[in-house]
Structures are given as structure tokens and as C-alpha cells.
Computed example of a mutant assay.
Amino acid sequence: MKKKRITIGLLIAGLALLLLACKKETKEEVIELSEVEAAEALPEEEPVPIFVHVCGQVINPGVYELEEGARVFEAIAAAGGVTGEGEASLLNLAEVLSDGMRLYVPKADEVVAESEGAPGETLINLNTASKEELMSLSGIGEAKAEAIILYREETGKFTTIEELQEVSGIGESTFNRLKDKIKV
């Protein structure tokens, strides 16, 4: 009789352990399933549109709506491609576009003329130059250097060196003094 009670007790204990193990697995499965359901219930993020002004040597210049993260080559394609006079190879076609950006596709002769400097002289890139580099240019002090940086932050990269004249405080005479020392 005592042996029977011990056997029954062991069976009950074994069943209890088995039930606890099953409950634990079921609970974990429910949690995992709930996480999957929660992930599926999250709304997919809508792509954020950006607007880019594509101009210069493209077939259909204009303002185009593209998805955030779009690249220069996609904007050019949206504008119908480059004209026969355009020189897109001088642009970084893989560059990521930003909202409000102006993308200018130049003629080949425009870029050659702008990139020529005095022999051995390094041209200052208006799109990447630091305040100190800009201040190394004749007639550009701290205030004008900061104005150039502010302009490119607010309107996007310079597309031509002539665009420098749109910066507050830089007129035609300053531009003429700098045009052989700068590039975009």
C-alpha cells in the first residue's frame, strides 16, 4: 500500500511538472505570437516626398516630386534625361538629394571654364569649404564666409560659381575677384 501511494505520488508530481512545462511553452508561444501580431499591426511608414528643381541641360526642366532618399540620377531621369549639350558625368550621380534642392546639369564648356585655375593653384570648393578655407579667399572675412555657409545650408549646394552672387554681401566685383579661385 505504501508502495502504491509513493508510485501515485510520483505520477502526480510528474504530471504536474509536465503540465507546468506545457503552460510555460504555451505562454512563450502566445508572447511570440503577440509580438508578431503587434509588428504586423504597425502601419507602414509612407515615403516622405521631396521636391527638387531640375534645370540646365535636361529635356524637361522643372520641379519634380521624388521620394526621400532619391539620388541625382533619378532626378535627371524624371526630367527626361540629359540633352545632347549636357554633361551629367561631371555630377555625382549617386548623391542623395534633399528637399528644396536645385540640381543644375551644366554644358560641358561651362564646367571646363569654371574648373580652370592658375597652374598649381588649388580651387576652393564652395560646397565643401570650411569657414577658414573660405576666409582664405581675398575679400572674404568671417561674416561673408558664414553667409556663404548659411546660404548653402538653406538652399542646397551651389550649382554654378555664379550663384555665389546670390549670397548677401557678395556683389559682382567680389565675384569677379574670386571666380578664378573657386569651384563647385
Rank of each mutant, 00 (worst) to 15 (best):
M1A: 12
M1S: 13
K3V: 08
K4P: 00
I6P: 02
I6D: 03
T7F: 10
T7W: 02
T7Q: 15
I8G: 05
L11H: 02
A13L: 14
L15C: 14
A16G: 09
A16F: 12
L17F: 09
L19F: 12
C22D: 10
E25R: 13
E25D: 12
V30S: 10
L33D: 04
L33Y: 13
S34H: 10
E37T: 08
A41G: 00
L42K: 15
E44V: 15
E45A: 14
V48P: 01
P49I: 01
I50S: 04
I50L: 00
F51V: 12
H53A: 11
C55Y: 04
C55S: 15
G56M: 09
Q57M: 11
V58M: 05
V58I: 04
V58Y: 10
I59P: 01
V63Q: 04
V63P: 11
L66V: 04
E67N: 14
A75S: 03
A75V: 03
A79Q: 06
V82A: 05
V82Q: 03
T83C: 02
G84K: 03
E85F: 05
E87D: 14
A88G: 01
E95A: 14
S98Q: 11
S98A: 07
S98D: 03
D99G: 07
R102D: 01
P106L: 08
P106A: 11
A108T: 14
E110G: 11
A113V: 11
S115Y: 06
S115M: 12
S115F: 07
A118I: 08
G120D: 02
G120N: 05
N125M: 04
N127D: 04
N127S: 06
N127G: 07
T128S: 15
A129H: 06
K131W: 00
E133R: 14
M135I: 03
S136M: 02
L137F: 03
G139C: 05
A143C: 01
K144Q: 09
A145I: 07
A147L: 06
L150S: 15
Y151G: 02
E153H: 10
E154R: 04
G156I: 04
G156D: 02
F158I: 07
T159Y: 09
T160S: 15
E162V: 08
E166I: 00
E172A: 15
S173V: 14
S173N: 12
F175C: 08
N176M: 11
N176L: 14
N176W: 00
L178M: 11
K179Y: 02
K179Q: 14
I182H: 10
K183G: 03
V184W: 01
